[in-house]
């Protein structure tokens, strides 16, 4: 058999591309401008593909429930969690987080949860969006 791939390749030519063109069909020259346009209703945002159930995204932290036991610091593989001994609370640096959710498992008060949020790109590793406290 010489040309076993001819048929699949031809079939492929007439299929619709599977790619989800997030955030817009063509890359906007300025993302910030594009987002303001979306807010003003001038442009349409193509939504990202939904995350599956049990996806491990940005950590959410219930500060009230936290008792400051620091067990999460003990198991965090990348040292992303810092203790605040005075307040008996914690501070999570998401730029170091590896999203393993081990801190969720060990927390005795269930105050840490993984959310669906995954758009965490930022130029500053210490920006407000990347620190959970």
């Amino acid at each position: 058999m010489r040309f076993s791939m001819i048929l699949p390749v031809f079939k492929q030519m007439f299929k619709k591309p599977w790619t989800n063109k997030f955030p817009a069909k063509y890359q906007p020259s300025s993302t910030t401008k594009f987002l303001t346009d979306v807010e003003a209703g001038k442009a349409k945002l193509i939504l990202p593909i939904e995350t599956p159930e049990g996806f491990r995204g940005k950590i959410t932290y219930d500060k009230e429930a936290c008792i400051g036991c620091n067990l999460c610091i003990k198991v965090c593989p990348c040292g992303a969690i810092e203790a605040k001994p005075k307040e008996k609370k914690i501070k999570i640096y998401l730029s170091r987080c590896c999203f393993c959710s081990q801190c969720n498992d060990i927390c005795p008060k269930d105050c840490l949860k993984m959310s669906n949020e995954f758009l965490l790109a930022d130029t500053d590793p210490y920006s407000k969006d990347l620190i959970v406290e």
Partner: peptide, 10 residues
């Protein structure tokens, strides 16, 4: 679908 991640399953 089963683990929550594609590569580093954890």
């Amino acid at each position: 679908y089963l683990t929550g991640n594609r590569i580093t399953k954890g």
